[in-house]
Write a protein that binds this DNA or RNA. Structure first.
Lengths: 322, 322
DNA sequence: ATTTATCGGGCGCGCTCCGAA
DNA sequence: ATTCGGAGCGCGCCCGATAAA
């Protein structure tokens, strides 16, 4: 900066002015400084700037657990929206274990982030979040209960109801559930909503089979589907794929013998055999909304209303009318 | 820091020593300082530290394009390995367009990264990389030609050969190719290797159908598969899924009427109907190797040898013996 | 003399390093 | 063997200076 000032024949302060606010600057002077900057290939030092302003303009994004379609989509939307707002996303992934999450949180705090967006699929994350004493605004991407102003959520129960109502409208009364891992909010909520629907509509009861979200676990669950069940409601698409595979290996066709409904609408689901009927969620919308809420908090504005997102049914070919 | 020093009754310099090298410190003093730090909840300021040391301890990771299984796996491995080495990964995604990549590169440079890992699936990224004049070590994750010391690659031709040899061993002589988008190195290399194999073994010639990696485009290509082809070699698994779907819609079964081989071995492929025979790539290994090379460059060591990774065939049920 | 536009000097952000005690 | 004081990293902010209106 000193060199630039010398070359342009001005003071370092004028160089600073050129870089930041351009008010009260003679165009001629500005051009001279700009030329000097160009010639010297000068770039301002972020660390020094941060040190004096106390601002980093960066927003931390914490994503625990293995990558998956929903998370990736949301995080990508968060990144984009953050950048568009003139902030820098500091995306940090972590394992699902609490110490890994704690480390990531510490890393983020050390970088003086001005806000934090956390993908919070299970309780471990939320617990660690409470540990963090920092006064930056925090928004969680949950799929659990709606916490006005601090979380962006998708109404899982709505999705489950859409699935079960559809299955019922197709004549199904004997539906078995393949759930996700019990510590995941999504799995809990979908299962609870499923149980509720079973009770409310007097549907047949089957033991719920718990997978781990992955197709492999879906296959295992698929081998245990009750012979009396006419339909299977899976907590995500990958497991649905595994279930269909297992059913097929056992000589039962989908949807001929058994109908299957998934959840998430991953891109592959449109092209499985049969194409999977599933519940679609607006992952990008969730990410974008999260950033809107964060920015509102940063600027001290009132958070825009919105309520949870509503997922919807995508009918394809994995359900047969009885 | 000043407050901590005051509380502990020492100078700020002693506090600094406690935080950094612990040599030449009376244990009693250290404990006193540590207690003060704890009591005041003191955390050192990264910006100030960076400003004076000139080191950020962070490694930039640039990932252009939409998220996909391979990229996500590699990047995750890069993150993990970076962290284990005591560095901080600054993961930055970007669109595939050159201006978006340029912006991301600028962002990274502004953060004074000490090294850069770039996922480089197409020429646009490489071009932008040349623009970047910075003297930090750069490693690209390519799938293109092997550039000793600056790129980590997977030998695509080996993978293609494994697929075609397998198909040939099963009696196939009429194989059609569904390629990825022409600007992607992977697509180019796989197609070139395919063409070479066709020529070398005197296989039947079919027009190559170009998709865009997505299952939807695979479906479209699938509707155009030549009636004489007994097998389809797809440049990735998603497109293979789409092809199978289209074939099925047209009343042709896989592998009964047509055999299909994919590439990548995404987790869903094991549970498609039929389970997809495909080529497996060690994405995590690539990410890890990239970090090893980067660290070697940072430390001025000689880069560990290794050569390109070799993908392998995973036989499942989408190929029939003729 | 009073405003307005344009510029510069010095201070300090929080920390590490270099001598010196 | 320990500890301390001071300098300075690169920058933006506060205030004052200067010239022009």
């Amino acid at each position: 900066m000193h060199d630039v000032a010398a070359l342009a024949g001005v003071s370092h302060q004028t160089v600073s002015r050129v870089i930041n606010r351009s008010a009260n600057l003679r165009p001629e002077t500005r051009d001279r400084v700009l030329a000097a900057i160009e010639e010297l290939g000068y770039r301002r030092n972020m660390a020094a700037r941060t040190l004096v302003t106390g601002r980093t303009h960066s927003i931390g994004v914490l994503t625990p657990g293995d990558p998956n379609f929903g998370k990736s989509s949301s995080v990508q939307a968060v990144e984009r929206a953050t950048r568009e707002a003139g902030y820098f996303p500091l995306v940090t992934s972590a394992a699902s274990e609490s110490d890994s999450i704690a480390k990531a949180l510490e890393f983020l705090r050390d970088r003086s982030i001005e806000a934090l967006v956390v993908v919070a699929p299970h309780d471990t994350v939320l617990k660690q979040l409470e540990t963090l004493d920092s006064d930056v605004p925090v928004i969680t991407l949950q799929t659990g209960g709606y916490d006005e102003g601090h979380a962006v959520t998708i109404n899982q129960a709505d999705g489950v109801r859409a699935a079960i109502d559809y299955l019922r409208s197709m004549g199904h009364r004997r539906i078995q559930h393949v759930s996700g891992p019990p510590d995941y909010f999504e799995a809990q909520l979908r299962r609870a909503a499923f149980d509720e629907a079973v009770t409310a509509h007097g549907l047949a009861q089957f033991p719920t089979l718990a997978g781990d979200w992955r197709a492999d676990s879906g296959y295992v669950c698929g081998t245990q589907i009750d012979a009396d069940a006419t339909a299977v409601f899976c907590s995500n698409d990958q497991m649905a794929l595994g279930v269909i595979h297992a059913l097929s290996d056992a000589g039962r066709t989908v949807p001929g013998d058994v109908s299957v409904v998934g959840f998430d609408d991953i891109p592959e689901s449109a092209h499985s055999l049969p194409p999977l009927t599933t519940i679609h969620q607006d992952f990008e919308g969730v990410g974008q909304r999260a950033v809107e809420l964060i920015l509102a908090q940063i600027n001290g504005e009132v958070a825009p209303e919105g309520g949870p997102f509503t997922p919807w049914l995508v009918v394809r070919e994995s359900v047969r009318r009885l």
